[in-house]
Amino acid sequence: MDLAKQIEPNADTARRRAAGLLARATKDELHAAWERLPSRPEVTPVRGPETGLVMVRGRIGGGGAPFNLGEATVTRATVLLGSGTAGHAHALGTAKENVRLAAIFDALWQEPGTRDYVEAALLAPIEARIAVEDRQKAEETAATRVDFFTMVRGDD
């Protein structure tokens, strides 16, 4: 493990969370955060954005041995900021511009000077949106839950 991970044991968890949220970002969310960025970094594309496939696996019986369910389109990008920080992004689908921006924000998130901005302007709103959407769906599903009741038959 590199030094950064020794100093900050939760670094992986935090970056995983950021990457997961960036993968869910909409075009509007990314563009808005990019437009409002106080100073735009110099960005060099390293790889992509490019679209390919990921073989999605399931497990036999739900929890058994893995099997190949089928593929999904995935777009990925790697960029290098002028400061030397590399950013990576991966997301389902074929939205190349979104993923390129997500990679830039992944790099900006790693830099102490811009992390707070990325958190406040992008990650927090995405997280809040997903929470609202999930809650709405869960409540809509809950309304279709069956309440069983027993019919009392006979006189007594």
């Binding site: 679209t51 073989m55 999605v56 869960a138 279709t144």
Partner: peptide, 23 residues
């Protein structure tokens, strides 16, 4: 179309026990 795309990798097996259930 899928034959025109490179494969980036294989996913971690999906966890159906933690599905966001719709039905």
């Amino acid at each position: 179309y899928r034959t025109t795309l490179p494969r980036f990798g294989t996913s971690v097996p999906v966890d159906t026990a933690n599905m966001k259930i719709e039905r």
